[in-house]
Design a protein around this nucleic acid. Structure first.
Lengths: 176, 176
DNA sequence: ACCACAATGTGGCATATTGTCGCATCTCCT
DNA sequence: AGGAGATGCGACAATATGCCACATTGTGGT
């Protein structure tokens, strides 16, 4: 049975992850920060890990680096609130096997662990067409919203738009 | 003197890159597609390369992989129109040392070659605050516009907004 | 239970942005 | 010269947004 380490400073999200992995038969350990995670890494030598990038104290990137120096064969997936290309490339360079933007459901995470590569290299370079403005906007809203635990007032502030406007956008695009 | 290979299907951009590198004392070779690039890689064994991701025919990602199998010590920087996290992680995993979104000026590219890491790992996890909606919108517009060679009509189509609207947005935020 | 405080849902209304049409250039290609 | 495609801009209606007020619903602390 695979031993997996789950690291996230946010209790609710970490426990949700935990339950999901336990239900699927993994032996889990959880940590809420760099230091806890390193202690567990030393003691339990997990073979897999899910690490949140943004944590109080030392960053998840540093954890990726240091954990791998202890257990080089560990497969690490990095999670992050707002995916930035800079942190993504850095995470991979440090040895993470994948990098996902929250909210990431368990299936996505498991898929990231299993696939060596999720892109078609051979692809005859099918037209890569840019996402529409509306799509980019919507995805960014979703990310920020997730980061605010769906707190609309908070998200609106961070997005630099009025709360009422965010409400209306959510209402408009929400199929529900 | 370092031998550097520049690969981009767009003539204008490739030549601009070329001039910039020549001016800085590099020995350059240029290619406009996967096949040309592989021929040059075989013959000249360059030690550096700048590769555009989106090219007619085989993708830049495949080039990264195959070129490294011939010259394993080659340092490759990948350029792309619209940075996507998926392609970024894949590029790094395949062995590229960095991944930049266009438009990338020469200094950025050189910096990418020189620095092993451009992020502060030790950073006490300074508050990562999400960019405003307006900011993401603007950045996306700039990317698409660059991809369309500043063709406003074309960019507007891809962005899913009216040409007139794009004009107005550009006018508003253009410091000029 | 009670209170204070924050978040939410809603309506109204003034203002700003957008979509759409038209039209006069302007460039490039044949 | 003629045609295709791009651009800049004016005008107007349709929407979207910012902003205020108010009622309602959590949430946490005492």
């Amino acid at each position: 049975m695979e031993k997996i380490l789950l690291v996230d400073d946010e209790d609710f999200f970490r426990e949700r992850l935990n339950r999901a992995f336990v239900r699927r038969g993994f032996a889990t350990s959880t940590a809420s920060c760099y230091d806890e995670a390193m202690v567990i890494t030393h003691k339990e030598q997990p073979t897999m890990a899910v690490v949140d990038l943004k944590m109080p104290g030392k960053s998840g990137l540093l954890l990726v680096k240091d954990a791998l120096s202890i257990v080089p064969e560990m497969r690490i997936v990095v999670l992050t609130g707002y995916g930035s290309i800079a942190t993504a490339t850095e995470a991979i360079r440090l040895g993470a096997i994948s990098y996902l933007a929250k909210p990431a459901d368990i299936d996505e995470i498991l898929k990231a662990f299993s696939s060596d590569s999720n892109l078609e290299l051979e692809g005859l370079s099918e037209e890569i067409l840019p996402p529409s403005l509306a799509r980019v906007e919507w995805e960014h809203i979703q990310r920020v919203l997730a980061d605010c635990d769906d707190n609309i007032s908070c998200a609106a502030k961070k997005l630099g738009i009025h709360r009422r406007t965010l409400q209306r956008k959510l209402y408009k695009y929400a199929p529900k």
